[in-house]
Simulated scan of single mutants.
Amino acid sequence: MNFILLLIIGIEIAFWVVIAAGLIARYVFQLPRLGLFLLALTPVLDLILLIAASADLLRGAAATTAHAIAAIYIAVSIVFGKHMIRWADERFRYYIMRQGSKPSRLYGYAYSRKYFKDWLKHVLAYVLGTGLLWVVIFLVNDAGRTGALSGTIKLWSLVVMIDLVISITYFIWPREAKHREKIHE
Rank of each mutant, 00 (worst) to 15 (best):
G10Y: 10
I13Q: 02
A14S: 15
W16E: 01
W16T: 10
V17W: 04
V18Y: 10
G22D: 04
I24S: 00
I24A: 04
Y27V: 13
F29Y: 14
F29E: 01
F29V: 01
F29R: 03
Q30W: 00
P32I: 05
P32A: 09
P32D: 07
R33W: 09
L34T: 13
L36P: 00
L36Q: 13
L38C: 08
L38Q: 03
L39H: 00
T42I: 03
P43T: 11
V44T: 12
L45C: 13
L50Q: 02
L50R: 01
I51E: 02
S54T: 13
S54V: 10
A55Y: 11
L58W: 13
L58Q: 13
R59N: 10
A61L: 09
A62N: 14
A62M: 09
T64N: 01
A66K: 04
I69V: 15
A70M: 12
I72M: 15
I74F: 13
V76N: 13
I78D: 09
V79M: 12
V79Y: 09
H83Y: 12
H83G: 02
M84V: 07
R86D: 09
W87G: 00
W87Y: 14
D89T: 07
E90G: 01
E90A: 09
E90Y: 03
R98G: 08
R98D: 07
Q99D: 08
Q99T: 01
Q99K: 10
Q99S: 04
G100L: 11
S104Y: 12
R105S: 09
L106I: 00
Y109I: 11
A110Y: 03
Y111K: 07
Y111I: 04
K114T: 12
Y115T: 12
Y115G: 04
Y115N: 15
F116N: 06
D118I: 00
V123T: 11
A125G: 05
V127T: 10
L132P: 04
L133C: 06
W134C: 05
W134L: 08
V136I: 04
F138T: 03
V140G: 02
N141G: 02
D142E: 05
A143D: 03
A143V: 12
T146H: 08
A148G: 01
S150E: 09
S150Q: 11
G151W: 11
